[in-house]
Design a protein around this nucleic acid. Structure first.
Lengths: 125, 125
DNA sequence: TCTTTATTCAACCGGATGGTTGATAAACCG
DNA sequence: CGGTTTATCAACCATCCGGTTGAATAAAGA
């Protein structure tokens, strides 16, 4: 879905959003079901305004959406956006892990460490 | 490997490290093979000092390691650390995606939107 | 040894970030 | 209507972050 030319600022916003422990706990909580701002704020010792800001960061990153129920604004997790992150990470993780299994790559890495330059030994992989 | 009680600051560091487009490009480059600081700096228009700082952030996050070859310090990607991130994300993504497939969860979510409280309808999932 | 190359250290700067408090808006409840 | 609940807006503040320039370290090469 998000393959090839993944929007850079979208990744910025999403990784930045998950770089904060409070926001990660919010995501964890939302994975078990939607919740309102005050519900989400309850386990924390910071103000609801601060939580509201955190939710805005998550929303701006597309990781959560909000609906409306009277004066409440329930927050819902968007798993598709999480999938965007795993697909980005896996793209490079898997390439590298394949290299570990590839003897040629191991030799190229040793060459980078013990000889002059790392350079492109086998870019045809 | 990193299941259960994943160290919070480790996740902080790793997500923060990937929240920067320059650092993500460095990771992408390193997935194709190790490289030195000046090699990594080349495609960018910023100073090598800035790149050096970026690498330190990645190293501190455990995403890369460094060896020594004379006055060069080749940088290597650590795929295991990337795997830590995907496993964290997937933990919550998959729970939520399961809810989408679960009719009971859909009903619970509607109840959260149209009635009084989101609350715990089916925490036994 | 003197010079060049590779990299880091140190100080600095502007802008973003995460928290605060106080005020405001909107919808429900009596 | 008046009051309570839910949430955001606004201003403020300290710290962090990503970049800069200039100096220092370390090893290689002449």
């Amino acid at each position: 879905m998000y393959d090839e030319e993944t929007d850079d600022t979208a990744l910025d916003l999403a990784f930045t959003a998950l770089a904060d422990p409070v926001r990660r706990r919010i995501v964890a909580r939302l994975s078990r079901g939607s919740a309102t701002v005050t519900e989400l704020a309850e386990p924390f010792e910071i103000s609801t305004q601060a939580i509201s800001k955190h939710i805005r960061v998550l929303e701006h990153a597309g990781l959560v959406t909000r609906t409306r129920d009277a004066q409440r604004r329930p927050v819902h997790l968007n798993p598709a956006r999480l999938e965007m992150l795993t697909s980005w990470i896996d793209r490079y993780r898997l390439v590298k892990e394949q290299q570990f299994r590839d003897l040629d790559a191991v030799l190229a890495r040793e060459a980078a460490d013990h000889h002059h330059s790392a350079e492109q030994h086998h870019r045809g992989a």
